[in-house]
Design a protein around this nucleic acid. Structure first.
Length: 271
DNA sequence: CGTCAGGTAGCCA
DNA sequence: TGGCTACCTGAC
């Protein structure tokens, strides 16, 4: 068992903000999979407790090295954002494995969080290996290059996304991911959008959640609704909403987006 | 039943 | 470029 003191970090908010889909909660502990091991993590005030995983991995996944006090002050552009930030302070954008993140968000197209989790778990059951910790069982994520059986992909109830997953598995290579990492935002986004099933929104999610590209401002229905309601006061295209988000919030627009998204989820009934 | 989910591709003006 | 619509599937 290890522990770490954290500031401006909230594990619950971070895990439940729709950026990471594969975790399972059992009395106070969250169980997650990293490679071929399960680990568990929980937070008590400013202390993070974790087991079966390295401190380095936790710090990287939750970007604990980032100065969130500073980042949040930069995106607190107006009274509304200030209140959202105050309310959900500690929500962080994660830095996930690019392969898992790409596959996950291809599954996210026109779906919902419950369904995405279901599909990813089914894919993992089919392509991963069974792991356990404290009598909690989970499967490892389908390994890199393993999604080679179209039937099995479809049996995970992935629907029209099945062919996208199959092709992504063919096209995503170590070299491809390394190139993306080196590119600036625009080029990286274009490269990701070469893949079938990855459009503007999903490319932005992948860049934001697995490449540390904080300029990316994914626009989904919820971001569209909240930006229209709070800022633009009229129906606006996704493209214009994204352009607004990036120019208004600046270099940490993606983190602002995550706060807005989390706020919208908590207030979903009001829309 | 229709509509809606963390959308995208293909088609048309 | 901008505005349609079909698309798997499950929940309401």
């Amino acid at each position: 068992m290890f522990s770490l003191t954290v500031t401006t970090f909230n594990l619950d908010h971070t895990l439940n903000s729709g950026q990471l889909f594969r975790f399972s909660k059992h009395d106070e502990w969250y169980y997650l999979v990293q490679g071929n091991t399960i680990f568990k993590i929980k937070q008590k005030d400013t202390t993070l407790y974790f087991d079966n995983v390295s401190q380095e991995f936790i710090a990287r996944l939750f970007c604990l090295h980032e100065d969130y006090e500073h980042i949040l002050s930069e995106i607190a552009k107006d009274a509304f954002m200030q209140s959202v930030i105050k309310q959900y302070s500690g929500l962080r954008v994660t830095r996930q494995d690019p392969w898992e993140c790409s596959i996950s968000f291809i599954c996210a197209s026109a779906s919902n969080i419950k369904k995405i989790q279901y599909c990813l778990n089914e894919l993992s059951k089919s392509y991963g290996t069974l792991l356990s910790l404290d009598h909690v069982a989970m499967h490892s994520f389908p390994p890199f290059k393993s999604l080679t059986d179209a039937q099995k992909i479809r049996r995970a109830k992935t629907g029209f996304r099945a062919k996208y997953l199959y092709r992504a598995n063919e096209k995503i290579t170590v070299r491809f991911l390394r190139e993306i990492q080196k590119m600036p935002y625009d080029g990286a986004k274009k490269a990701l959008m070469q893949l079938d099933g990855i459009g503007e929104k999903i490319a932005d999610c992948i860049l934001l959640f697995s490449f540390g590209c904080y300029e990316a401002f994914p626009v989904d229905v919820w971001i569209k609704r909240i930006v229209e309601q709070q800022y633009l006061h009229q129906p606006t295209s996704e493209k214009k909403i994204a352009a607004f988000g990036r120019s208004y919030f600046g270099r940490y627009a993606g983190i602002a987006q995550q706060y807005l998204y989390f706020y919208a989820l908590q207030h979903a009934h009001e829309f």
